[in-house]
Design a protein around this nucleic acid. Sequence first.
DNA 1: GAGAAAATCTACTCACGAGTAGGATTACCT
DNA 2: AGGTAATCCTACTCGTGAGTAGATTTTCTC
Lengths: 247, 247
Amino acid sequence: MQDRAIKREAVIRAAARAFNEKGYHNTSLDDIAAALEVTKPTVYYYVSNKEQLLFECFLAGVEQIRAAFREVKQLDVSARDRLNAVLRHYAQAVASEFGWCMVRTEDLDLSPSMSAHIKALKSEVDQGIRRLLREGMQDGSIHPCDPKMTAFALAGALNWIAHWFRENQSMTSAQIAEAFVLIFENGLLPRQTSAALPEESAHVESSHLKSRSSGRGRDTHSDRSVSGRTHPSNSAAARRRGRERGD
Amino acid sequence: MQDRAIKREAVIRAAARAFNEKGYHNTSLDDIAAALEVTKPTVYYYVSNKEQLLFECFLAGVEQIRAAFREVKQLDVSARDRLNAVLRHYAQAVASEFGWCMVRTEDLDLSPSMSAHIKALKSEVDQGIRRLLREGMQDGSIHPCDPKMTAFALAGALNWIAHWFRENQSMTSAQIAEAFVLIFENGLLPRQTSAALPEESAHVESSHLKSRSSGRGRDTHSDRSVSGRTHPSNSAAARRRGRERGD
DNA sequence: GAGAAAATCTACTCACGAGTAGGATTACCT
DNA sequence: AGGTAATCCTACTCGTGAGTAGATTTTCTC
């Protein structure tokens, strides 16, 4: 055996999976060790304590989002398109293995120093979203809104994905990301001009995503009619679709 | 001293506050007892175990939301308006004392029977939102969307309020509720017809809310300009406004 | 005020889980 | 091979916190 770094990462991933499944406090280090078919002291050989384990999981998750911001900074498109690209990555990160840890890691469970570190990273993400919102309002690509509240709403909706998303479900995380961007863009109010600013969005970053699955863009959802009104069969279709809850 | 029920409720509330502050797992029953200036066995005199304490807190929170659904059922307005009324109550419930417990109570921490009970209640709320969305699409008051994903997005955004809202902050929970409804309705895409379906919303339930504070409706946020573009000072105003994070 | 019932206390048990000491085993190098 | 360093183990300690037994105090009733 060799390559300590790889094994260390395996420990982190095992921890992430366990936390994801049973929660931080309901997961003992013995559990994590057992999942790796080793014993507890072996785990301690790679990480210094349980806290650090959680912290590393958080880092792995949030780093995906930070990368999205960096990537998007280069793009020469409207702020809304850049925001959408970030939100898509955000959604996928939250739905990933480390999603739970990223979302649920509470300052409460951590030592002051780590807590501060995490707070700083969370704030960085939040401020990044707010900034894109403001830029979008300035370049006219985003409807005027309170950037702070809107950032909270967006982050909340996306973070919550970690609560209900499970692998092997009806939708992939990419499809969910797409659906959410659509919801965020349109809002609940009917839009009479169904083709306002027709394309221009939801297409820009297709080269930056790992171009998953097939359906992308505005037609992911087969059961949405184009007219203002939905046909009655819609509710039946919705009923057919799983039973997961969202709160 | 008398009236067991009142004291019991005080215990529940103390637990809610403690959970809210330090999290379920970081709160011992000794803590709760100390907050009430009694000892642990006294707490056990009123509740049978810690689990039940959490469960009761959850119930208290979710009941507010269920009440909102019942209340709204009577109204003779568009489905969107009924949905908005529910969302407002939802937001206030989440921002209340029991918000944390309602949102964070995990099936993981509870026995199978309680877990099932909670799941059922959560599902009821979720299905209620989906139903309103479907009705809104049918009566034309809501933009066509996937009701399941949209319900998840709405619930997520609102649930997340429990993570960042603290009493004595710049905004009251009613103001936050109002801001969120506005965001949900409009979405991020600019709306060229700034007065589409001009009033008609955000006014219906003013008699049903406890008519809090002063600012209500579309003009709560002083820093949103009416034109499509925001003036530059906006970002400065945003910078002035607190430092809380949203993820 | 006596006796019963309600309410609260002191003083425990007990399990579980984080973290450690120190020994065994394995791989690595020349 | 033989020695060293890395890796992993067995077998503990120790604190904490949920929950309880049983005594004690308060309150209510007649």
